[in-house]
Design a protein around this nucleic acid. Structure first.
Lengths: 196, 196
DNA sequence: CATATTTGCTAATGAACGTTAATTTTACGG
DNA sequence: CCGTAAAATTAACGTTCATTAGCAAATATG
């Protein structure tokens, strides 16, 4: 009988969530089956249900874990005394770092959240909307202080966030750019693009 | 008996493809069922098969129609005598315009192509890779001519293209900016972000 | 070593899926 | 107004899906 392997301090549930993040990223939530997941974990499909409640719960856990990480970082950034441009640079670098270090989860949270079921769906959308609003208001401050070009702040947020989410694993594996180099390239384009 | 409505010069197949693009955008290819599509078209699910061969064919038609449009535009741009920066601006403006005027198809082609079946999948990936390479080499020329910052060209391509695909959320957002304003905002950020 | 709990297995369920076959209805040229 | 081809319908098919029930094995606890 094949057991789910766990290092200490890592529950079997966490092993399954991690595997599901990879699977959902590779195939998409809807196309990924619990049987696929079982193979990845090394167990029969039915056995998964000793540890999790449902497929939906997996997506839910992934999305909200990621959302909370970004939310907390936003709190941190807002509480500092930095200029708007410096704050934006901090946010961008954090997004890039998360995308590189936590790729599967961040990617899934970004692209597959629409398959969340209510009430989690509306919840997630609200959190997302709120995050973008706070992001936009930092840009707006930069505009009012004359550091940033006069552009529509919420359009700029979309441009920045989507530009970063485009950095998927394909890029690093086939093109062999280091994480640091990647970060500098992106920050150069986007921060300079905003500045006057 | 409900017939599929057609204006002249529009086949019933084209009506179905158009409806499927909207459906695939709303729900995702895998989550969209032929029964959903039938409802949208106003007919029973089985009736669709008088006009199309399969669900897969619908995705295939959407993706390759879009890919061909962008491919042809790239040919056009490359054959002009403009500077690299001017060429990039042309490409960006075309992407934005396509995203605004042809939203459903472009979005589906961008996000759902991975559900294409071989050999169409490899075909599409090759075309995509080739397009990005040509895009990157325009950036590279700009770097060598000293108009563009010394950055990794293929990273820049991903940043630019994904930044534009971020328009999708703008489409749904209640706070609407006009198409022209949107275009200017995006071009401002991205072109200025590249330039020295 | 005994026993309780956790974890895994096999088997099965009902629902949803894409698609096909057989048949009926509609539109239209002669 | 008839005959024919196009288009729509109903009914069904074989799969695949997420999930459950019941039982066996492994592990933890004392």
């Amino acid at each position: 009988m094949a057991r789910i392997q766990t290092d200490k301090d890592v529950s079997r549930k966490e092993v399954i969530i991690k595997a599901s993040a990879k699977l959902f990223r590779e195939k998409g939530y809807k196309a990924a089956s619990m049987r696929d997941l079982a193979v990845k974990v090394g167990v029969e499909a039915a056995s998964l249900y000793n540890h999790i409640r449902s497929k939906a719960e997996l997506l839910h856990d992934i999305c909200f874990n990621v959302a909370n990480v970004f939310f907390e970082h936003m709190n941190e950034v807002e509480s500092t005394q930095a200029t708007p441009i410096e704050k934006l640079e901090k946010l961008l670098r954090f997004h890039i770092k998360q995308m590189l270090e936590n790729f599967e989860e961040v990617y899934v949270s970004d692209r597959e959240w629409r398959y969340l079921a209510d009430p989690y769906l509306s919840n997630f959308q609200n959190q997302r909307r709120s995050y973008r609003k706070r992001f936009a208001s930092i840009i707006q401050q930069g505009i009012e202080q004359g550091q940033i070009n006069k552009i529509d702040a919420s359009t700029a947020v979309l441009v920045l966030l989507h530009a970063i989410s485009g950095i998927d694993s394909w890029h690093r594996s086939t093109h062999k750019v280091s994480g640091e180099e990647l970060e500098e390239n992106i920050v150069t384009i986007l921060i300079q693009g905003l500045q006057k």
